Amino acid sequence: MNSNIEALYKIANKPVRKIIGLMSGTSFDGLDIALCEFSGSGLETRVKVINFVSKAYLPEFKEDLKSVFAKRIVDLEKLTLLNAYIGNYYAELILESLKDWDISPSDIDLIASHGQTIYHAPMQQREADAYSNATLQIGDGDHLAVKSGIITISDFRQKHVAAGCEGAPLSVYGDYLLFSDPNENRIMLNIGGISNFTFLPAAYSTEFFSSDVGPGNTLMDQFVQLNYPGKYFDQDAAIASSGKVNHQLLDALFDHDFFRSAYLKTTGPELFSLSYLNDAIHRSGLQGLSNEDIMATLATFTAKAIVKAITFCVEGKGAYEIYISGGGMHNPLLTGIIEEMLGKKLKFSSDLGIEPDAKEAVLFALLANEAVSGGKTDFGKHPGVPSISMGKVSFPQ
């Protein structure tokens, strides 16, 4: 037996596996690193988060990512170089974190890397063509494995696309396995660059589902970065809170086929870009609108899209609780609007044992655990959640 396969076999049969989950979102804040201990698999999965850190990216690296992100035309050499560079950079950040935690890399069984999403191209977001759904994440798993010395599982989204889906949201798998409850209907709401939620009916029903619903932080972040040099987001919603919602612009923002198309669906900053905003402003004849009023309107746009989706998708399904995660949970204006519109207090995934800032990194670690030790769960027959094993294995030698 090849020594690499033998090592993977031994890991798969361990009673407890130490897996590092990595997540880097579309806001380019930094790399989330969650060191987890897993036992079991499927609905018997048990996870303990041992350590978590979010390693901030250097400003120049953020600019490099922005130069190739969500653009139809990019510098192909830069993209190629970044694919290798990010794999090595992630490894350096992991080794630095392990040193801080006084943990040897040899004690880690697996790395689970989401990679950095560069472009998301579902069919429903394009004009008719000969191509299927597609999505691209960079940050090469082989570079990460060789540099860290740890077996790496990466590029999870491609199997989902190959199975006829859109490559997102993948959080539905972990949400179902970790957060389903016998007695409570739950909505796991994530507000990252894009907003999505998973609905988990009580009693471990396989009638769960997940969907993107529209922008999260992406439009607000892009607008801040353009108009407030040195800022990457609206800290504590200070800008948006000083403005007033313009309902004419709000209506124009909702006037798009995405909001008329059926759930379940995915999207990305490729659609919800500054061009999307500028087009809505132009159609509204509101070129003189203040930055503060635009930000207030964007916050309301994000919140209202979330509320519309939740109320439409779970109507008639009984009472439910909402558990929030993602960067948007730190925006008090955004969360306040959602709570007011729903008449419901938002809870946090920490109420269920997983810190919200770490949740996405933990869920990708879970996908790696399933890749080596699971794969037996039947997720039902509904669209978007095929019963598949995801992730590509890269060995350090």
Score class of each variant (00 low, 15 high):
residue 76 L to P: 03
residue 39 S to A: 13
residue 54 S to T: 13
residue 19 I to F: 13
residue 54 S to V: 03
residue 44 E to D: 14
residue 42 G to A: 04
residue 16 V to R: 13
residue 57 Y to D: 09
residue 58 L to G: 11
residue 37 E to Q: 15
residue 53 V to C: 14
residue 24 S to L: 03
residue 62 K to N: 12
residue 40 G to N: 04
residue 38 F to T: 07
residue 33 I to K: 05
residue 53 V to T: 14
residue 68 V to Y: 02
residue 44 E to N: 12
residue 67 S to Q: 01
residue 47 V to E: 11
residue 64 D to V: 00
residue 67 S to F: 02
residue 23 M to K: 07
residue 61 F to G: 01
residue 70 A to I: 00
residue 41 S to L: 08
residue 59 P to L: 02
residue 14 K to E: 11
residue 14 K to W: 04
residue 21 G to W: 09
residue 9 Y to L: 15
residue 33 I to N: 06
residue 76 L to D: 05
residue 30 G to P: 11
residue 57 Y to R: 09
residue 26 T to F: 12
residue 68 V to G: 08
residue 63 E to P: 00
residue 18 K to F: 05
residue 67 S to T: 01
residue 31 L to E: 00
residue 71 K to E: 05
residue 43 L to D: 06
residue 32 D to N: 08
residue 28 F to Y: 07
residue 62 K to S: 08
residue 35 L to N: 05
residue 63 E to T: 01
residue 71 K to R: 13
residue 23 M to Y: 06
residue 34 A to Y: 01
residue 73 I to E: 14
residue 9 Y to D: 15
residue 12 A to F: 11
residue 34 A to K: 01
residue 54 S to A: 11
residue 28 F to H: 13
residue 14 K to T: 06
residue 52 F to K: 01
residue 26 T to G: 15
residue 31 L to Q: 01
residue 28 F to Q: 07
residue 53 V to N: 13
residue 10 K to Q: 12
residue 29 D to K: 07
residue 13 N to H: 13
residue 18 K to P: 03
residue 21 G to I: 04
residue 40 G to W: 01
residue 21 G to Q: 03
residue 66 K to L: 15
residue 50 I to K: 14
residue 15 P to D: 11
residue 32 D to L: 00
residue 29 D to C: 07
residue 66 K to H: 11
residue 68 V to F: 09
residue 47 V to G: 10
residue 50 I to S: 15
residue 26 T to E: 15
residue 21 G to P: 08
residue 62 K to Y: 05
residue 17 R to P: 09
residue 36 C to K: 10
residue 42 G to H: 02
residue 27 S to R: 04
residue 45 T to N: 11
residue 26 T to S: 15
residue 47 V to R: 10
residue 55 K to T: 03
residue 58 L to R: 12
residue 20 I to W: 11
residue 39 S to N: 06
residue 58 L to C: 03
residue 9 Y to Q: 15
residue 9 Y to R: 15
residue 49 V to E: 13
residue 16 V to S: 12
residue 28 F to I: 05
